[in-house]
């Protein structure tokens, strides 16, 4: 039986939501913006886009979305955070008392590559998606300072982790939704399809 088209939600409290929706659709998913708690139920995967992490974390708590997202992700829902999304998903933020969802066992450092003048486009090696370098856009980007056990490091820049995966949770400190290369969106969809197959098997058993 052919796999059904996965339904991916993009958290739409703030940030570059539209860019992810477009890239996800090009990569072969159904995609829609998610702002309300009840919209979480129908999803096969969730993307937390680029944006301001302090702002979005406050809005997640204010509008009662933080706990339901954590519950779903801990139960296996695939999650991908880009830049702000990586910070929001992390265990903690170096040198800041910033609340996070704590669904990815890493410590991140915010604005680690610098402020806006240091924002850059960088050719990045990401072996998990093939040999051709990925044109990665870093904007006031964080890096991964510590990885916990079970966290795979998928790409580094200047010796600092910028793409990691822990089971169903993927995070990039750059923005694959800017620019036309959809390979990382396809990689996330492969995680989603894997989760759907496992889910189907456990239901059948």
């Amino acid at each position: 039986m052919a796999d059904r088209v996965p339904a991916i939600g993009v958290l739409a409290l703030q940030g570059d939501v539209e860019e992810h929706l477009v890239a996800l659709r090009r990569a072969g998913a159904q995609a829609h913006a998610v702002k309300q708690r009840d919209q979480l139920d129908e999803l096969d995967g969730l993307v937390i886009p680029g944006g301001e992490s302090t702002t979005v974390m406050k809005l997640l708590q204010r509008f009662g979305l933080a706990s339901p997202i954590v519950e779903r992700v801990r139960a296996g829902l695939p999650l991908w955070g880009t830049c702000m999304g990586m910070i929001v998903a992390s265990h903690d933020v170096a040198d800041l008392k910033q609340p996070t969802l704590d669904v990815l066992d890493v410590t991140v450092r915010r604005n680690a590559f610098g402020r806006q003048n240091e924002s850059a486009e960088v050719d990045l090696n990401v072996p998990a998606i093939g040999a051709k370098p990925f044109a990665a856009v870093f904007i006031r980007a964080p890096w991964v300072e510590r990885v916990g056990p079970g966290v795979e490091l998928l790409a580094s820049r200047e010796g600092h982790g910028v793409m990691v995966r822990q089971g169903n949770v993927l995070a990039t400190s750059f923005h694959p939704e800017l620019g036309g290369d959809t390979r990382i969106h396809e990689y996330f969809l492969s995680i989603v399809r894997e989760a759907l197959r496992i889910g189907k098997r456990s239901t059948a058993a």
Binding site: D16, G51, Q116, E121, R140, H175
Partner: peptide, 17 residues
Amino acid sequence: TGTDTVKRGLAQMLKGG
């Protein structure tokens, strides 16, 4: 650094805010 993509990109990250 300083490309249109990164300059316009920061504004894209501020959307909805």
